[in-house]
Nucleic acid binder design. Sequence first.
RNA 1: GGACAGGUGGCUGAGUGGUCAAAAGCAGCAGACUGUAAAUCUGCCGGCCCUUGCGGCCUACGGAGGUUCGAACCCUCCCCUGUCCA
Length: 420
Amino acid sequence: MTTDEQLAYLTKGVEETIRVEELRARLESAAAARRPLRVKAGFDPTAPDLHLGHTVLLRKMKHFQDLGHTVIFLIGDFTGLIGDPSGRSVIRKPMTPEEVAANAETYKRQVFKILNAEKTVVDFNSRWLGALTGRDWIALCSRYTLARLIERDDFSKRLKEQKPIAVHELLYPLSQGYDSVALEADVELGGTDQKFNLLVGRDLQQEYGQPAQIIMTMPILEGLDGVQKMSKSLGNYVGISEPPASMFGKLMSISDTLMWRYYELLTDLSRGEIAGLKHSVDSATTHPMEAKKALARRIVADFHGPEAAQQAQKDFEAQFRDNALPHDLDTRSIILNEPLKLSRVLTGIGFFESNAEAQRKMKEGAVHLADFDAAGELQWTRITDPTWVLDPSDHSEVVVRAGSRRLVKVKVNRTTAGDE
RNA sequence: GGACAGGUGGCUGAGUGGUCAAAAGCAGCAGACUGUAAAUCUGCCGGCCCUUGCGGCCUACGGAGGUUCGAACCCUCCCCUGUCCA
């Protein structure tokens, strides 16, 4: 591959590269020296539950691996104590080594669905940051200025809005920058929200007599709501370990506009191919829902394989188009000896937060029970009476649905006498 | 250390003695319409209980006390945040 081809491959989908010319030079010198580049990306140790938003970055890391470079998957177990100053933050409780190790394992299990395990170095920044002495910290801090730190968007914004900024938060960019020094990183990847931290790394490396790393920022993926970034805490995410049906369903619920963004960031289709598909939808040749199904199928296949993706689509169509039950219907067992209000059952299986909410939703007509009639046809009955009672002697199992997303089969078991 | 301004439900933000479980907006959930899309309309949106009623009870407006028949609202002390001065 020529350098130009490599550049095109590596910068595809990237929001910003600082600087492309430096990357070119670094690629060339590395090739000449037969030395792989050291490519670093940091991850928070507290959220080992990866979602599609993370895969945008992981894909880019993989591209570097494809070209033979070394990817360092850095777990920020030390910086995790500070917390990235993206909100108001306090000093977090240190995690035990066991917790960190457990999270790292979880990471590996998920990350290697995309990354090549053999070409990935997993490291922890507590290895060097934890070893710094007080003097080392002072030395590190002396190499940067307050004015430059508060240039950071989060800081200047909070300053302007008269919101608090704790002093330790200033250490976050410095610590992350120092990681690059410790690792002698050639390239650091991150989301666009990481730009400031990545730039600090460039500066600090030069302060410590190293060539400045090239930084590449990846777009932040919007969550299912299409507005806020995909995040677990906002609940607008698709986890990469989720079962196929759930992934498929969530992807089908995104807006048509967002669909194109997902096509761009979560599939391997080229821009040209995507544009072609979009044109086909715009000209009413392809129904938008079909385009969305294709997207969902593609993404599910990435993590579960094509057969599972195919099945997920079939189930989806059965459930929402034909009003049937999915194949892998969730089943919950409950113990019930006495008749019990359905509202309590619904709260018990986690459909609703409280009995009060369950009753409210029942009144609103959100709750349905499924039964098979004499002809074996599935019949849905809407239960709007909040006092409706489930009698274990009438039902050994019921299928309940609340809203469009909550659907489960409840097995009603009775304990034998004296078995409490 | 001083002066001043603030701390209300997931967020923004009204309310300054009873009619306040607390306006309004956002977010969320549900219903209708659909393609589990968008837009729109409607309802809900602290908890518990039941006889599901414009029902009863509990908890809640930074914390602790106090005044009052009654406090998010008044008083005292404390904690927290910001601005300016030092």
